[in-house]
């Protein structure tokens, strides 16, 4: 564990989480959520939980981003609130 890496990745995780819930464009929110998952994956790897990181990379950053984009594509791109 290198605390400088931890700090940078954690800051990026928080930034992307806030960005994902504040942004109005749902397609961008989905993509940012994918970035968030990938940063979480980096954080897991950094802490030594490689199996969890692998799952996060394949499920969180990979397939669920596709699901989000497919759902946005079939509904609406703008939020009401």
């Amino acid at each position: 564990m290198i605390w400088q890496f931890d700090l940078i990745i954690l800051a990026l995780v928080v930034i992307s989480a806030i960005a994902a819930i504040t942004i109005k464009d749902l397609l961008s929110a989905g993509v940012i959520l994918g970035a968030y998952s990938f940063l979480m994956c980096l954080l897991w790897t950094e802490m030594g939980a490689v199996d969890v990181a692998f799952t996060e990379a394949s499920v969180g950053a990979g397939v669920s981003t596709v699901f989000m984009i497919a759902a946005v594509y079939k509904t609406t791109r703008r939020t009401k609130d």
């Binding site: 199996d51 692998f54 799952t55 394949s58 499920v59 990979g62 397939v63 596709v66």
Partner: peptide, 14 residues
């Protein structure tokens, strides 16, 4: 090594 059914299944589905 890291990996297993869940990850492999998701990659196959992907």
């Amino acid at each position: 090594s890291p990996g297993g059914g869940f990850q492999g299944g998701v990659i196959l589905g992907a």
